[in-house]
Structure formats: structure tokens, C-alpha cells
């Protein structure tokens, strides 16, 4: 079996790389794929928390790379998906503890066993970023519809192309459909035009994401969450399915409009 190693990166911090990694990994596993997610954010590990596996960590990525444990000892099986594994980052070490070649070797070993190896890249464009992208064969770029995040994404695309990761795919996270509708937020087309990369999916801003992360259950398990279904569609696109893009228009049912009129407009989120 030869799997695909995909790095999930953004440049700017806080745009949802870790959330996207956890959800994509879970969604791919729900589709019956064998997935391993690697947290490459050494020293600032979060992926285990988002996936609710924090208390199961015994060995971590640095231990594997330094040969202190076997690869399988550091792989933590997910609570919900049997074919989803996590290799957590070391919290007490820093990004210089590993070299890009070492991570690449590890990923090549993992590719033999798994369909997907997802690497959660740290923010920034320094050592940790170079480690993560050096190991990957494909890249997914996460950005939010903010000027700063897009500027960083543009820089990162340049760096990815420089290290032979051509044609990264774009996930636009936290789109607020109401703001887009009123022209106060960049919409998908503006961002795609500026970055000129292929778009993989849009994730609407959704507070389910936050509550799910706090509970340690990725939001794709939440059938009602629009962001969860967005991640499911993105996973399907990663997996090679043709999934049409959902309309970004806010829900305009009569009740919603009535609520809007009386100032009670609650969550007017939409599917993406």
C-alpha cells in the first residue's frame, strides 16, 4: 500500500490547521480509509487535545524519531474510528529536535501501512514548517478570509512551490456568510483569484467547531454542525470524489427572516 502524505499548513497561526487536520483525518477514516495524523507542532502540541486523546499519550514523535520507542508504540488509536491513529508531538522539546529527513523517513514508513498520512504543520515558516513540508508530497493550505491570513498563505504557497510541493489546495475556514453577503468579508472568488490555487472547500464559521474541540470530539461527528458536513465534503474531495460546492447563501427561510426582522437572528449559518 502506498499512501499519500499531505501536510496541512497555513503560515499564519490560529486559522484552524489543527482543527482541519483532526476533522479531515476523522472524516477520511469515516470513509473507510486508514489514516494516521502526525502533530508536527513540537513544543506546542494541540492535536491530541482536539481529538480527545491527551491522556493516552505515552510516547511521542520525537521518541519515535530518536529511536526510543517503536513506531507503533507512539501511535494512539482514536476513540471513535478504529482506523485512525495519532502520533502526538513532544511537548517538552522544540522544533529543532527533528530533521526534515527523519520525518520524511518516518512518513515513508507510514505510507506503507496507511492510505493517508496527514501532517499538522506548525504556524510560521521556520524550522518546524520546513520539517513538516519536507516530509509531504501534497499540501493543503488553510486560510481564513482575512487579509493577513491570505497574505501569509500567499507567502506559504511560494515556499511550498519552492520545495517542490506544487499546486497546493485551499481550504477557506471560518467564512461568515452574512459578512460576505454584505460585502464586508472577502468571498471565495476574491481569495481564489488572489492566491490562484485550486479550492478544496469552504468551511463556514460555526460555534459547533469550538464546542466540539473543547469536548475533544472532532466536529465531523456532529451531524447537525454545518462545519462538520463541510469537512466531510472536503474529505470526499481529497479522496477523489466529485462533490459539488454548496451554496454559500445564508439560510433564508421565512422563520429566519422573521427572526432577522425582530433582531433575533441566531445562527444563520449555511452549508459550504
Amino acid at each position: 500500500m502506498t499512501g499519500r502524505t499531505i501536510v496541512i499548513t497555513s503560515g499564519k497561526g490560529g486559522v484552524g490547521k489543527t482543527t482541519a487536520t483532526a476533522n479531515l483525518g476523522t472524516a477520511l477514516a469515516m470513509r473507510g480509509q486508514k489514516v494516521v495524523v502526525i502533530d508536527a507542532d513540537i513544543g506546542l502540541r494541540n492535536l491530541d487535545v482536539i481529538m480527545g486523546l491527551e491522556n493516552r499519550i505515552v510516547y511521542d514523535l520525537v521518541n519515535v524519531i530518536e529511536g526510543k520507542c517503536k513506531m507503533h508504540q507512539a501511535m494512539i488509536r482514536d476513540k471513535h474510528q478504529l482506523e485512525l491513529f495519532l502520533i502526538p508531538a513532544a511537548q517538552t522539546r522544540d522544533k529543532d529536535s527533528i530533521e526534515p529527513e527523519q520525518l520524511r523517513e518516518l512518513c515513508e514508513k507510514l505510507e506503507q501501512e496507511f492510505d493517508y498520512v496527514l501532517i499538522d504543520c506548525p504556524a510560521g515558516i521556520e524550522g518546524g514548517f520546513k520539517n513538516a513540508i519536507g516530509a509531504a508530497k501534497e499540501a493543503i493550505l488553510v486560510t481564513t478570509p482575512e487579509v493577513s491570513a491570505i497574505r501569509d498563505a500567499d507567502r506559504v504557497i511560494g515556499l511550498l512551490e519552492a520545495s517542490e510541493l506544487h499546486r497546493p489546495k485551499l481550504i477557506i475556514n471560518r467564512i461568515n456568510t452574512n459578512l460576505v453577503k454584505h460585502g464586508d468579508m472577502m468571498d471565495k472568488d476574491d481569495i481564489v483569484e488572489l492566491l490562484s490555487v485550486e479550492i478544496l472547500g469552504l468551511v463556514p464559521a460555526d460555534e459547533h467547531t469550538i464546542t466540539a474541540a473543547n469536548r475533544g470530539v472532532p466536529v465531523v461527528h456532529d451531524k447537525k454542525a454545518p462545519s462538520g458536513s463541510a469537512f466531510l465534503r472536503i474529505a470526499a474531495r481529497v479522496d477523489g470524489d466529485e462533490v459539488p460546492f454548496m451554496s454559500l447563501e445564508p439560510k433564508t427561510s421565512i422563520i429566519d427572516r422573521m427572526k432577522g426582522l425582530v433582531g433575533l437572528s441566531g445562527r444563520a449559518y449555511s452549508h459550504a
Partner: peptide
């Protein structure tokens, strides 16, 4: 893309955008 610098002695033609940065 952002972060790229093109210096040239002569004229420069870019077949694409010149992005911020």
C-alpha cells in the same frame, strides 16, 4: 507571490499577478 523579489537589469514582463508583499 508575497516574499519574492525580482530584480532585473532591463525590462520585466510578468505573465501573472504581482501579489501583495
Amino acid at each position: 507571490r508575497s516574499g519574492e523579489i525580482i530584480r532585473h537589469q532591463g525590462d520585466v514582463v510578468v505573465m501573472g499577478d504581482v501579489n501583495p508583499g
